[in-house]
């Protein structure tokens, strides 16, 4: 998996001199040690999650379970299920909305520019870096006073708006690679903006939609800050639920760890299955097209 473009050069590079068998062995050793360190937290998560309650103690913490148990998972599922569902209901619309808006913006900013487009783009980009805290108090007050605090709408709105900048960036950088001639041809045919967008741009946009949807899905799913400010017990997404479960030390470790895995599963699965698109989103986050 993860066959991203840069990888294609590896075939030539690997023949480069200077990579002795000994050097290779040393490299592998270092990498395996690092991999083991990286896996350590994941090991603890999984191992503890599969332990029955009375085995999830300090003394046996690092050992494999003596008897594998789903007890922790069941309890975690009960505690998290409403949150998982809230997250799905919140993440899907906001990912789609940001992606659609981002695609429209990206097209215009790359290929159908208007006076001041650069300023708009810069202001959008800065929006990508703004700490949520800087808008949190007014946002919360607005939602409270508009009487919207009971539902998921405030959170959907927040994630949609804060997803626009990165989606715009990703789409714009992608559309900038579409040859001018294609668009000019459409214009000569008398196609207006909408038709050009629909007939020339959209058909080639599928991979970028995948990138932005995944990116938005992941970041909205993993968000905690907007969620604590903008939701209540009935609308808590999974991160807040998880923090409530794990935040109190009363909950046994097996259940805490199982809950942490459950809450991360959707994004992890997407990462493993669609890693290529995930990577592109990451790279775009670094303003690299």
């Amino acid at each position: 998996m993860n066959r991203s473009a840069p990888e294609r050069v590896t075939a030539t590079v690997s023949r480069a001199p200077g990579t002795t068998p000994l050097g290779q062995a040393a490299k592998f050793t270092v990498l395996f040690v690092l991999a083991a360190l990286f896996l350590l937290p994941m090991y603890v998560l999984l191992v503890t999650a599969f332990k029955p309650f009375d085995e999830a103690t300090a003394a046996r913490a690092w050992l494999l379970p003596q008897s594998w148990s789903l007890q922790g998972w069941a309890a975690a599922w009960d505690a998290l299920a409403p949150g998982l569902w809230n997250s799905v209901q919140m993440v899907v619309p906001s990912a789609i909305l940001s992606a659609v808006l981002g695609s429209m913006n990206g097209f215009v900013l790359a290929r159908w520019r208007f006076p001041g487009a650069d300023t708009v783009f810069t202001l959008f980009l800065f929006g990508m870096f703004i700490p949520y805290q800087a808008v949190m108090i007014p946002l919360q007050q607005t939602m409270v006073e508009a009487g919207l605090m009971g539902g998921l709408f405030p959170l959907i709105l927040a994630h949609t708006v804060y997803g626009i900048p990165i989606c715009t960036l990703i789409f714009r950088n992608y559309y900038a690679t579409i040859p001018h001639t294609l668009i000019e041809a459409a214009r000569v045919d008398g196609a207006g903006l909408l038709r050009t967008y629909r007939s020339v741009i959209l058909p080639v946009s599928a991979p970028v939609f995948a990138v932005t949807l995944i990116w938005q899905f992941t970041s909205a799913w993993n968000d905690f800050l907007f969620a604590v400010f903008l939701t209540g017990p009935n609308t808590w997404p999974v991160t807040v639920q998880l923090n409530n479960v794990a935040g109190s030390m009363v909950v046994p470790y097996n259940q805490q760890m199982a809950a942490a895995v459950l809450a991360s599963l959707p994004t992890l699965v997407i990462y493993l299955v669609l890693g290529r698109y995930f990577m592109r989103g990451l790279m775009a986050g670094a303003l690299k097209g």
Partner: peptide, 22 residues
């Protein structure tokens, strides 16, 4: 590469659970 990148797909809230224990 997949392994080293994987933690990035998970929230701090989730990884915080295991790190607090560690």
């Amino acid at each position: 590469r997949t392994l080293f990148l994987a933690p990035m797909a998970v929230s701090f809230i989730a990884t915080g659970v295991v790190w607090r224990w560690l």
